[in-house]
């Protein structure tokens, strides 16, 4: 019990994640048209941030570790930004 109490943040993060999952499914019922897609993806991004910050403990990671994590996102952003150029310039 003491162990769980000392890791309360992990439990809270887990509850938040399950609540976000429920919310993401509930969004299906909202008549929002294409805006619904943004809400679904936005919720997924928030869930990913919670997992990375708390389960992966990125919030306590050093500068180098954060740089490596951001590096992955940067290369992903390059790929995602440059790929549509092909479609947009045809």
């Amino acid at each position: 019990m003491t162990f769980l109490r000392s890791n309360l943040l992990l439990i809270v993060a887990f509850i938040v994640l399950e609540a976000l999952l429920g919310a993401n499914i509930a969004i299906l019922t909202l008549p929002l048209g294409e805006f619904r897609i943004l809400l679904h993806l936005g919720t997924a991004v928030v869930m990913a941030v919670v997992v990375a910050a708390i389960f992966m403990d990125l919030r306590h990671a050093g500068a180098m570790m954060r740089l490596f994590a951001l590096g992955g996102l940067m290369w992903l952003a390059f790929m995602w930004l440059l790929f549509p150029v092909d479609y947009l310039t045809r």
Partner: peptide
Amino acid sequence: GLTMALAERA
């Protein structure tokens, strides 16, 4: 994910 994170703390 929670059980694994708790395992790391344990």
